[in-house]
């Protein structure tokens, strides 16, 4: 059977590419070193495929169709929102395992949209290029959870999906080792008047929940409280809830945390170990 052997939570802040020199070199180096450390640890896990939970930013999906959750099952490329340093490229995929996960999730009474081809955005492309590609250009299986456009997917629903991904992998007849990545956060306000506000206290609270693998604690947070304390962008901690739920007995180990107002985000990097 397949196995979820671990996970990572990493940010996907586009300003690390769009405005790289607005922060001191020491900060920039620390952030890119954190991605490199996640890549190094991913390499040690000897994974065969990586599931990435990302967020649409009202680019991939428009008002004509807003999936609560979508999975890419076929050919992949991206990002659609390319930027200097983040070029658009073909991304390795794993269609057989992806198809198996899709059908397992649907059989689990979870309605999931699927994309038979998908051009991902930066929320998947940043971890793909900075963590997955350096670890051996492993195939990825992307999910998009509605985190940025109302109505967002309920946190508990995101966690439920993560659990279904885990059971799907465990029901896979092959012996693939699979790693999950929750992409996003932590505190940031996108496009609102308080854009640039980073809340270290909120970030530490989330990191403590993650360290304990406390998905229930994440689910207990109301969206109103998350937006008030962490900004509208922090709603994407539901990607953390999904990733944690996919890892057996998860425990988070902090790789790095940097609050970077110039990049409008509290940037947290965590390895999620399977106990």
């Amino acid at each position: 059977m397949g196995q979820i052997v671990g996970g990572f939570l990493v940010p996907h802040d586009p300003l690390i590419f769009a405005a790289p020199d607005t922060v001191p070199a020491e900060v920039k180096d620390a952030v890119f070193d954190a991605y490199a450390e996640a890549a190094r640890r991913l390499g040690e896990l000897r994974a065969d495929a990586v599931v990435v939970f990302g967020t649409d930013h009202y680019i991939l999906f428009g008002p004509g169709c807003l999936p609560q959750a979508l999975m890419g099952v076929g050919e992949l490329d991206g990002p659609i929102d390319r930027m200097r340093g983040l070029d658009r490229r073909v991304i390795p995929h794993h269609p057989e395992l992806a198809d198996h996960i899709l059908r397992h999730v649907l059989d689990g009474d979870f309605d999931l949209a699927c994309a038979k081809v998908l051009t991902v955005d930066h929320s998947v492309a940043i971890p793909q290029q900075l963590v997955v590609a350096p670890a051996g250009d492993l195939p990825i299986i992307p999910f998009y959870l509605a985190c940025g456009v109302d109505p967002v997917i309920p946190m508990r629903r995101a966690a439920h999906l993560g659990g279904l991904v885990r059971s799907a992998v465990e029901a896979w007849p092959g012996d693939e080792r699979v790693v999950v990545i929750g992409s996003g956060g932590i505190s940031h306000s996108v496009g609102e008047a308080d854009m640039g506000r980073v809340n270290v206290e909120f970030d530490q609270m989330i990191l403590e929940l993650v360290a304990e693998g406390d998905v229930e604690g994440l689910c207990a947070l109301s969206d109103d409280d998350v937006v008030r304390d962490g900004g509208n962008g922090a709603l994407e901690i539901r990607n953390f809830a999904a990733a944690l739920s996919a890892v057996p007995n998860p425990r988070g180990e902090l790789i790095a945390y940097r609050p970077v107002p110039q990049w409008i985000t509290g940037l947290g990097f965590v390895e999620v170990r399977a106990a």
Binding site: D150, V190, G191
Partner: peptide, 13 residues
């Protein structure tokens, strides 16, 4: 536009 409920990510684009 924001007061009318337009998503801020759309405003930025």
């Amino acid at each position: 536009l924001r007061e009318r409920g337009v998503n801020p990510m759309l405003l930025m684009g």
